[in-house]
Design a protein around this nucleic acid. Structure first.
Ligand SMILES: [Zn+2]
Ligand SMILES: [Zn+2]
Length: 443
DNA sequence: TGTCAAGGCCAT
DNA sequence: ATGGCCTTGACA
């Protein structure tokens, strides 16, 4: 061992340089003993050091091995992460594609729905026309006369069909609507429209005056009511002129016109009827319907929302949808819809005007420290129907619209007012908070 | 004393 | 679990 040999050598060299006397011998011996002890202790220390060094070396080796393993693991993890990232990107891409496809399909579905409803309307109106013709034909007294009526109506039906199959592909009601919104001044005929109507009235009175036939009586009533309505007559005459192109014999044509146009008198009863209202009335009263009960009802009762709903089973769902949408829009404007699910607001809950169910949901979630998971991509739609589907997204939306966890009371204390925010400390401030929130929602 | 936003309860 | 209704109690 190096240190020991060094000490021994040094001692020997000292001994050789210095010759001892008799008294010094004892001292030298003692010194030699001490040096031996030191040598031994050195030896022990060296052994210990050696052992420690070995231990440290082993530990270091182990650490190095472990580090290498970790490095390998890290590399594997990185590779895996890269793979996952790639697959995630791919999935996102495919998701986007699918979303686009879904959107396209929805558009197609909407278009098909539209065309279907248009076709249904056409079918219904044609059926009614046919029914009308059959009724007319079933009258034995005026059989010959109504054969021409039939021809005329058939021509009208063909016209409708043509309109539907044309490039514009509009509703079968369109021709009627177009006629309706045209102004009297746009008429191509020189004959004053009012005259045409008057002649109709006279002829009808001559032919069937006071007769038992219900439809004709109704027509008369209508025309009497409309006498003071110049604008309405103008509209009428426009369509009369158009329709009269179909036949040559005037009195028959006029009868047809009167029959065809009779249900439209409802629109004429109100002078200032807007276009939209006229169209709505058209929906509920098919142009060629001769069912006396329908017309009687239309004449007797003013137009109301419920009336329009019940008038025609085909239009009932459209109307209910429309009314629902309008009601919702109105409530939203008035701030009466829950910002989370769109249900009816029942007051302020946890700092936000929400519905009762969202209040309960928020309360439950906060009190029980529930942890939800979203099985989709954490952006589920939440509305009155879908709100139960994903609690995670519902709670997220609750927090998103501003519901405050601070309003949950630690000791579940009932009653009283919260003091978690200075905004709610006074009613004045509270109202200010309301206004502020309304403005935020409104923007 | 009335209001209203908390928590509680309970039928579904 | 949900949601409608009830009870409570501080505050104006
Ligand atoms: Zn809600
Ligand atoms: Zn979700």
């Amino acid at each position: 061992m190096e240190p020991r040999s060094f000490v021994t050598r040094s001692w020997r060299s000292l001994q050789s340089q210095h010759r001892p006397t008799g008294g010094e011998n004892l001292r030298r011996a003692v010194h030699s003993e001490k040096m031996d002890e030191i040598d031994q202790s050195h030896k022990r220390v060296c052994v210990n050091l050696e052992k420690a060094t070995q231990c440290i070396t082993q530990a270091l080796q182990r650490e190095v091995a472990r580090n290498q393993e970790l490095c390998v693991l890290i590399r594997r993890m990185e590779e895996r992460e890269a793979e996952l990232g790639q697959s995630l990107a791919e999935e996102a891409e495919s998701n986007n594609q699918l979303r686009l496809e879904i959107e396209e399909l929805q558009k197609q579905l909407e278009e098909k729905d539209n065309s279907l409803s248009k076709a249904n309307q056409t079918v219904t109106s044609l059926t009614k026309e046919l029914h009308c013709v059959q009724q007319l034909q079933s009258r034995p007294s005026s059989h010959g006369r109504f054969q021409e009526v039939d021809e005329c109506l058939q021509l009208g039906g063909i016209q409708l069909k043509l309109e539907q199959s044309g490039p514009s592909a509009c509703s079968p009601l369109r021709s009627e609507q177009l006629v309706c919104v045209q102004t009297p001044g746009s008429s191509t005929r020189n004959t004053p429209p009012v005259c045409l109507i008057k002649r109709e009235e006279e002829e009808e009175e001559e032919e069937e005056g006071g007769g038992p036939e219900a439809p004709v009586c109704l027509i008369k009533e209508e025309e009497e009511e409309e006498d003071d309505d110049g604008a309405g007559h103008g509209l009428y005459c426009q369509s009369v002129v158009e329709r009269s192109d179909l036949t040559t014999e005037e009195n028959k044509t006029e009868l047809i016109q009167a029959l065809l146009l009779a249900p439209r008198t409802q629109a004429q009863t109100s002078v200032s009827a807007s276009t939209s209202r006229v169209i709505r009335q058209k929906k509920t009263s098919p142009q060629t319907s001769l069912v006396s009960s329908d017309r009687q009802r239309l004449l007797e009762a003013p137009v109301s929302k419920d009336e329009a709903k019940g008038a025609d089973p085909r239009t009932a769902p459209i109307f209910s949808d429309l009314m629902r949408v309008m009601e919702m829009a109105g409530q939203e404007l008035a701030g009466d819809l829950c910002p989370v699910c769109g249900d009816k607001v029942s007051g302020f809950h946890y700092g936000v005007k929400t519905c009762e169910s969202c209040k309960s949901f928020f309360k439950r979630t906060a009190h029980t420290n529930k942890v939800y998971n979203c099985v989709k991509s954490q952006n589920c739609r939440i509305d009155k129907i879908l709100r139960q589907q994903c609690a995670f997204c519902r709670f997220k939306k609750c927090l998103g619209v501003g519901m405050r966890l601070e309003a949950i009371r630690a000791g579940r204390v009932r009653g009283g007012r919260n003091k978690f925010s200075p905004m709610y400390s006074t009613q004045k401030n509270h109202k200010r908070a309301l206004c502020h929130q309304d403005k935020e929602w409104g923007s």
